[in-house]
Design a protein around this nucleic acid. Sequence first.
DNA 1: TGATAAAAATTGGTCGAACCAATAATGCCA
DNA 2: TGGCATTATTGGTTCGACCAATTTTTATCA
Lengths: 244, 244
Amino acid sequence: MTTANDHDANHRGARPTRAHKAIARVLLGQIFRGELAAGAKLPTERAQARAFAANRATVREALRYLETLELIAVRQGDGAYVRDFLKSGNLQVAKEMIEVDMDLRREILAALLEVRRNYLPAVAYAAALRRTPAQLRQLEKAIRRNPETTVMARDRRVHRIIARSSGNVLNILLINFFEDFFDAFGPVYFDNPRHRRRSEQFHHDIHTAIAQQNAGQSRDIMHEVLLYAENALLEGVDEHPRGV
Amino acid sequence: MTTANDHDANHRGARPTRAHKAIARVLLGQIFRGELAAGAKLPTERAQARAFAANRATVREALRYLETLELIAVRQGDGAYVRDFLKSGNLQVAKEMIEVDMDLRREILAALLEVRRNYLPAVAYAAALRRTPAQLRQLEKAIRRNPETTVMARDRRVHRIIARSSGNVLNILLINFFEDFFDAFGPVYFDNPRHRRRSEQFHHDIHTAIAQQNAGQSRDIMHEVLLYAENALLEGVDEHPRGV
DNA sequence: TGATAAAAATTGGTCGAACCAATAATGCCA
DNA sequence: TGGCATTATTGGTTCGACCAATTTTTATCA
């Protein structure tokens, strides 16, 4: 795809994304910025192929993606319509929002951290009650100081094991979602030795609580560390408004 | 697409889905059942096109979908590999699990209800603190008894307004996710007049608490009704194990 | 005139074959 | 044996055509 819309792909390293991905990005931007309002009808696939100087099959792959995000509704013989993404979009769109519009970066990060703080304590609570002996051993192993692994890697693993221990599949899928952001924002946080120490403290404490199956304490420990990280990260992002 | 794999599309009304959707469904089933284990390499697109008696472009649209769910990783020049969906899958896969394997229906419903119960109270808490006067008026209007609307429709709207009032975009997107299940399981619940009354009670109570900006009470009211609905629904599903 | 049905135009869905681009496998040479 | 150019494999994209559902237009008749 070589088109006049290339300037829309102004994101990060901006490796020459696959064409269908690039097209999707342009459409996402138009939707998020309201240029394509809810209810609006997209141009025909043929017209879009012309506009993007791409093949119809390529355009279709992009549309398929928007459809998966539940941002558009496609009807054979009719056309594709923009949906109200605040009424139908799925979680994945939050990720796209950040990629497409860096200005939303801080807002979404703040929203994400709040969700984490509100939710993960309940997961820790359930994990303390339901964890199996095997899962406890996994946790022990995961928090062990080890020159081979970084604190960040261990932290990631701890959260995952806790989610698994909660015995709820959705918790695991939710963690997957969080981890995508973790990759982007984690390094900022774990660069600071003070935060690394705080994490190791957390690992120790939550392990103890889960070992004793002390659900209330697990919940509180989780809540505390998330609150700490939330404050730290929001300050950190303000200092580096454009990230790494 | 006319293929020997048609029997894999043994779900619900089984309307002759679009071909790429049907292919995706087959692959999803193989992944969920472990026939395609994590790390396994999918056949080449050309081979799959042959196997499904479909065109390669059609297969590609299916693969694009699995890629969006983060269930496979595709590399040009190499191939497509199955990822561990418990480590990478996004929330959307929960929906697919239900569609593909009805046996998971109850398990996922239970997981979903637990997430709701653990999470929405915090949303109600934030909503009570942050709601604007306009949002309060919307809530008032939404809970008004009205022969034109069903209790279920009103309930849906109440939850959405609360999520919006919380001032967190992710809460809204999370509600979108819940609502997809709402369509499937809501009718079972709201068929019961007792449950309908319970909902109207909830609407009244939560409105009062949010009007007074009593966050703690909002949280508790929300928690109570979710607990009630959770028990009711899990019983209801056991009675109608295959749904409507 | 107006409702209704048939026909045409529009648009997404699928197909086939070809070529480009990135990766992996092969084999040659130093 | 190790490194590197060559070849084969595989996903990415393109072109052009036809199928299928929907909408719009036209024709028809009561």
